[in-house]
C-alpha cells in the first residue's frame, strides 16, 4: 500500500497529514509538500498522530520547515505527534525542538 501525505488547504491554512510510515522514500514527497505548503499557506500544520515509523530524513525535513517558518514568520506546528514520532525525536536529541513546535 502506498503511503500518502494528506493535503488539506483552506484559506491559507494548510494541513499535512503524515502517513504511518515515514521512511526514507517518503522524504522527497514530504519536502515537496512542505515547499508547496509554504508557498500557498500562512499556517502550516503537520498532523503527526498516525506516524508509526519515521526516518531521520523526514524529521530533518520538518526541522528545516520549522526554520523556514521562523525566518518567514509563518505559523508552523506539529500537531498531536504520535509516541513513535516523539521517541524518534528524542533519540535524535531533538526533544526540545519538538516541544517548541508541537501542539497537542
Amino acid at each position: 500500500m502506498v503511503a500518502l501525505i494528506k493535503w488539506n488547504e483552506e484559506g491559507g491554512h494548510v494541513k499535512l497529514g503524515l502517513p504511518s510510515d515515514l521512511d526514507l522514500p517518503m522524504a522527497q514527497p514530504l519536502v515537496d509538500s512542505l515547499r508547496h505548503a509554504f508557498t500557498v499557506g500562512d499556517v502550516i500544520e503537520i498532523l503527526a498522530d498516525s506516524v508509526e515509523r519515521v526516518s531521520t530524513a523526514c524529521i530533518q525535513a520538518l526541522l528545516v520547515a520549522s526554520r523556514t517558518a521562523a525566518e518567514s514568520r509563518q505559523t508552523f506546528a506539529i500537531v498531536a505527534p504520535s509516541v513513535p514520532f516523539v521517541e524518534a525525536c528524542s533519540d535524535l536529541g531533538l526533544a526540545s525542538w519538538l516541544n517548541q513546535w508541537r501542539r497537542s
Partner: peptide, 14 residues
C-alpha cells in the same frame, strides 16, 4: 542544515 529550497531530502545534514 540548508534552506527548504535547497534541501536534498535524502542527504543528511545533522
Amino acid at each position: 542544515l540548508p534552506t527548504l529550497a535547497h534541501l536534498e531530502p535524502e542527504l543528511l545534514y545533522l
